[in-house]
Structure formats: structure tokens, C-alpha cells
């Protein structure tokens, strides 16, 4: 197994972890973190596979990852602000369907 495959497989593992957490965790902060893990997993796959060329990595995936990071940061900021608004307006830290019965 080459180094880039190792990175890519780590990306797959992280993707599954993030997906799982998004589905089963209920606190909104954890759900947002899960989405961040999903994003990082994808970036890892892109950067890992870009290294297959050896010493000169493909710059296009690097640029994609940089763009992706900025988008991920923005989306996270929006999600956290909305979570704060939800907490301030209705005292919720979970979605209504995830409330303990």
C-alpha cells in the first residue's frame, strides 16, 4: 500500500466516522463537528491522491482543497450562528425530533 493510498483510506475511514456521528449524535454542536470531519475526510482524499506523481504533486487538488476549506469554515460559522440563534430564541440545543422523550 502506497503512502497516497494510506491517506486516501484514512479519508474513507474519517468520512464514515463523520457520517455516523452526523446520523446518531443529537447535540447540534456535535452534528456540526461531524460535518467538519466529513469535509476534512474529503480533503484528505484529494491531497492524498494528488501525491501519486511523486515529487511534484498535482496543484489542482491543492487549490480545490484551499477553496473547500474556506467554504467549510464559512458553512461552519453559519451553522454555529444559527445554533446560537436557536438557543437564544427557543432554548434548543437539539432539533425538536431529537429531544429526549
Amino acid at each position: 500500500m502506497s503512502l497516497s493510498t494510506l491517506y486516501a483510506m484514512t479519508g474513507v475511514a474519517l468520512f464514515s466516522l463523520g457520517f455516523h456521528a452526523l446520523l446518531v449524535q443529537r447535540h447540534l454542536l456535535r452534528k456540526v463537528l461531524a460535518l467538519n470531519v466529513l469535509g476534512s475526510a474529503t480533503f484528505l482524499l484529494l491531497v492524498g491522491m494528488a501525491r501519486r506523481g511523486g515529487d511534484t504533486p498535482d496543484p489542482v487538488p491543492h487549490a480545490m482543497v484551499l477553496t473547500g476549506i474556506v467554504v467549510a469554515v464559512s458553512a461552519t460559522a453559519l451553522a454555529l450562528s444559527l445554533a446560537r440563534r436557536l438557543k437564544a430564541a427557543q432554548g434548543l440545543v437539539r432539533l425538536p425530533e431529537d429531544m429526549p422523550e
Partner: peptide, 24 residues
């Protein structure tokens, strides 16, 4: 569900070619 999809993705990633792309 997550395990199954993860397994599918792992197979997919292992099937990727070793040769780099030519965009560089």
C-alpha cells in the same frame, strides 16, 4: 448503513489507478 457505505468507498478508493493525472 455507515459500515456498508464505508466498505463500498474503501473498495472504490483501492480501485483507483496508481498513475497520477496529467493536469500537473
Amino acid at each position: 448503513l455507515v459500515l456498508a457505505s464505508g466498505l463500498g468507498l474503501a473498495v472504490a478508493v483501492l480501485s483507483l489507478p496508481d498513475a497520477p493525472t496529467d493536469l500537473a
